[in-house]
Amino acid sequence: MSARPVKHSVTLHGHRTSISLEVPFWVELRAIARDKSLPINALVAEIDAARGMDSGLASAIRVYVLEVLKERLSTSE
Rank of each mutant, 00 (worst) to 15 (best):
A31L: 09
S9N: 07
P5M: 03
S76P: 00
S74T: 14
E46W: 05
V65L: 00
E67H: 04
V27I: 13
A3G: 06
V68S: 02
G52S: 14
S20C: 04
E71I: 01
V10H: 08
A58H: 02
V23H: 09
H13Q: 15
V63F: 01
W26F: 02
V68Q: 12
R4Y: 10
S74A: 14
L43P: 04
E28I: 01
V23C: 01
T75F: 05
L69Q: 15
A60W: 02
S2C: 02
A42L: 11
A45L: 11
E77I: 11
H8R: 15
Y64L: 05
S20Y: 06
E77L: 12
V68L: 00
E46P: 02
A50G: 12
E77Q: 14
E71W: 01
T75N: 12
E67F: 00
V44Y: 05
M1K: 06
I32W: 05
L43E: 09
A60Y: 01
S37P: 01
S37M: 13
V44P: 07
I32N: 06
R62W: 00
K70G: 06
T17F: 00
G14A: 08
E67W: 00
H8C: 04
D48F: 05
L73I: 04
P39L: 15
R72K: 10
P39K: 15
P24A: 04
V65E: 01
T17V: 13
H13T: 12
L29Q: 03
R4T: 13
E71H: 10
T75C: 07
V6H: 07
G56F: 05
E46Q: 15
L43W: 09
F25S: 01
P24Y: 01
L66Q: 10
G56R: 12
R72H: 02
A49Y: 07
R51W: 10
K36Y: 08
L43M: 08
I61W: 01
